[in-house]
């Protein structure tokens, strides 16, 4: 069943280094395609590292693998993903007259995809 979370896309040092190494290279692609979930939420929802989930916002949806947030970084109810193609897909186009779409701290729904098989990248 889908549950509502708040997602924070943001910079990580690995994502930042990946920009310089090349956006089509493994390091960057790995970093921007992993969703961090609070360990308490993973336990409650019976999720394991590497499981696939679908995350949907008002504006888009993504399928993504999860990993536990380290060192108490996320309180339960909060998700984190490094900035990139996937995080931008969830962002709405409306900037509320500011030029800036709401790109952090918006509501998403997350649902586990136990049988999900990603289509290989072309």
């Amino acid at each position: 069943m889908a549950e509502t979370f708040i997602i924070i896309p943001g910079r990580t040092s690995r994502q930042g280094a990946g920009i310089s190494e090349g956006k089509f290279k493994q390091n960057y692609q790995d970093e921007i395609t992993q969703l961090q979930v609070a360990p308490e939420d993973m336990q409650r929802l019976n999720l394991q590292p590497g499981d696939w989930v679908r995350v949907s916002s008002e504006s888009g949806q993504i399928e993504v693998q999860i990993k536990p947030a380290k060192g108490g970084e996320l309180p339960p109810g909060l998700l984190f993903i490094a900035y990139g193609d996937l995080s931008s897909r969830l962002m709405g186009a409306d900037t509320h007259g500011s030029g800036m779409p709401t790109s952090k701290g918006f509501d998403v729904e997350m649902v586990a995809l136990p049988d999900y098989k990603p289509t290989p990248a072309t």
Partner: peptide
């Protein structure tokens, strides 16, 4: 005028 003349808005 942010929101009117900003890039993401004029594209979207």
């Amino acid at each position: 005028n942010p929101g009117e003349y900003t890039a993401t808005d004029v594209l979207a």
